[in-house]
Amino acid sequence: MHPVRRKRLITIAIIVLVLSGAIGLVLYALQQNINLFYTPTQIALGDAPTGVNIRAGGMVVKGSVKRDINTLFVSFNVTDFKHTVHIEYHGILPDLFREGQGIVAQGKLLSNGTFLASQVLAKHDEKYMPPDVANALKQAKDNTPSKPYNDN
C-alpha cells in the first residue's frame, strides 16, 4: 500500500478507535440514566429515589389487578420474578395492558413503597402470532388468563 494512504488509514483508524472508546465510557457512566425504568429489584434495594418522577417497569402479576367500579382507579403489582412493586394509577390504561404483560409506569415512589403512577405504558415483545394459533395454544394450556384481541 502506498505510504501516504497507509498513513491516512492509520490516522482514521486511530480517530475512530479513540472516539468509540470515549463514547463507550460515556455510555457506561450514564448507564443508570439511559435505562428507561427501574426494575422492582432496584426499587426493593433502595436504588430508586422517592418523591421524584421516575419510571418503574415489570410484568403485571396475574390476579393482582383491582379496578374501582365507579372511577378510573386501578391498582396492580409488577414483578421481575425476584421482587414486586405495588402500583396505583388513576387514568386510562393502554389497550395492551393485561395481566402477564410487561408495562412501564411513570410516577413517584412513595416512602411506604407504593408507586403512584401518572402514566402507564405497555411493552410488547417481538413474538407475533395469528389469533387462531393463540387460541389453540390457550386451549392447549388453558392457564393463561390473557384475553385474545377481538375487534371486528
Partner: peptide
C-alpha cells in the same frame, strides 16, 4: 444493553423470527 420500552429485534441471523412463516 439497557432496559427500553422497545422490544428486541424481529430478525436476527442466529435464529428464526418468533412468528409463523405466513407472517
Amino acid at each position: 444493553w439497557w432496559n427500553t420500552l422497545h422490544q428486541p429485534a424481529t430478525f436476527s441471523f442466529m435464529k428464526k423470527p418468533d412468528m409463523p412463516e405466513v407472517m
